[in-house]
């Protein structure tokens, strides 16, 4: 077991968003977390990344409790999050964005294997290496954000709505890239509103509703579940 959340409760100020979330990810899996807006998907990721301290429950990663650890420690241990939106530092160049992400885990700079992996996956980033990230197109920024999450070779990559705002063709590519990353040995927790496509590439899925997991199981099973189809797949 790579990651296990047990009864996580968390929220912002006096507002409680998560009312006891439990989920697990095995090594090598793609797990997707789907649900409507406001269900608590992003909050779950923020608790996982150490941005929010859980008020109750436990997070165990790779055999040790990471509940309440600071975000930088969690990144060091091998959990990287690509947040919703563009997820890049706009005034830094493409290369600087990647360098910072690599530095944090002590990947030796310019010992270029880590960079090569990212550039192989997204050749356009190599071309734009010295360009400011803010001048890239939306799709390119998304690639950089994912490359940034990837360069430190995390054991677990958290992706928050990666397809949001991308043109349909780019979305196709994106899901293919996510599968590729997974095949390289990185486990993935994928938060998506695009539930159908997420379930199509995932091993297992969790469905979230108002701060709780309301259904879970193998992806194919969820895809054929009537209740899930009605609520999230629109068919």
């Amino acid at each position: 077991m790579l990651l296990k959340l047990t009864g996580i409760e968390a929220g912002y100020g006096s507002i409680k968003v998560l009312h006891g979330v439990s989920l697990e990810i095995h090594e090598g899996e793609i797990v997707t977390l789907i649900g409507n807006n406001g269900a608590g998907k992003t909050t779950t990721l923020m608790a996982l990344s150490g941005m929010l301290k859980p008020r109750a429950g436990e997070i165990v990663f790779d055999g040790r409790s990471i509940t309440g650890l600071a975000p930088d420690r969690i990144v060091e241990l091998g959990i990287c999050q690509v947040p919703e939106g563009r997820g890049v530092f706009p005034s830094l160049t493409v290369k600087e964005n990647l360098e910072l992400a690599a530095m944090v885990v002590g990947t030796r700079l310019d010992s270029s294997k880590a960079f090569d992996t990212v550039y192989d996956l997204f050749p356009v980033l190599k071309e734009r290496e010295n360009q400011r990230a803010g001048t890239l197109s939306g799709g390119e920024q998304k690639m950089l954000a994912i490359g940034k999450g990837l360069i430190s070779r995390p054991k677990l990559l958290l992706l928050d709505e990666p397809s949001l705002g991308l043109a349909p063709m780019l979305v196709q590519n994106l899901f293919r890239v996510i599968e590729q990353i997974n095949q390289m040995g990185t486990s993935i927790l994928l938060v998506e509103q695009n539930a159908y496509q997420a379930l199509a590439i995932a091993d297992r899925g969790y469905v979230m509703e108002v701060g709780k997991i309301c259904a879970y199981g193998p992806a194919e099973k969820l895809l054929s579940d009537d209740a899930v189809r009605k609520a999230y797949l629109g068919c």
Binding site: S49, P71, F89, E96, L100, M103, V104
Partner: peptide
């Protein structure tokens, strides 16, 4: 570079580690 990154976005800087 880290300083510029924090200036760009504190949230993303934290998530970056």
């Amino acid at each position: 570079k880290s300083m510029r990154a924090v200036a760009d976005s504190m949230l993303l800087a934290r998530l970056t580690g």
